[in-house]
């Protein structure tokens, strides 16, 4: 029997407790929060992030790593397309250390926004990598 067998028996796939608690905290924050799991797939975004990214969590059943890293047409300060590997959240996942940077994105609602992103990895109590979080700050709205 593996550690996940009893989850499968009951069809209940529970997230790690640290991710559960971070999601709960995020749901009460006004600052936009984008939370990914250990695979880099979107686990949660709070209401402020929904507004900033122009998407609704309820409407996107899931958003795997390969999808969110290209979904928002990220561009750097020079207006050029940004490599996926240079996105702060991708760096936090890959390098397991905090990362920060400015970006211009086009949300799911078609609105272009300039934002600052701070991302950091989440390591659980057993020293396991359980995911990463990005917090956004809108620096100016492009009219």
């Amino acid at each position: 029997m593996t550690g996940t067998d009893f989850r499968l028996e009951a069809d209940m796939a529970q997230e790690p407790i640290e991710l559960i608690l971070f999601r709960q905290l995020s749901s009460s924050l006004a600052i936009p929060v984008f939370l990914v799991d250990a695979n880099g797939d979107l686990a949660y975004l709070n209401e402020a992030a929904e507004q900033l990214l122009g998407v609704r969590l309820d409407e996107i059943d899931e958003m795997p790593f390969a999808e969110w890293t290209t979904a928002f047409t990220a561009r750097n300060e020079g207006g050029h397309g940004t490599d996926v590997d240079s996105l702060p959240l991708v760096r936090a996942i890959r390098d397991r250390r905090p990362a920060h940077g400015p970006l211009t994105i086009t949300g799911g609602d078609g609105v272009e926004r300039r934002i600052e992103i701070t991302a950091f990895p989440l390591e659980g109590g057993r020293g396991r990598f359980i995911g990463a979080v990005a917090m956004f700050w809108e620096t100016a709205a492009d009219a």
């Binding site: 009893f6 028996e9 009951a10 209940m12 796939a13 529970q14 559960i20 608690l21 709960q24």
Partner: peptide, 22 residues
């Protein structure tokens, strides 16, 4: 503390759900 325990969308976000399942 981790949310609504009467939720109908499963136990993905509920503390303790896996080890107590069934």
């Amino acid at each position: 503390l981790t949310g609504d325990l009467d939720r109908r969308d499963g136990t993905r976000w509920t503390s303790g759900a896996d080890i107590a399942a069934g």
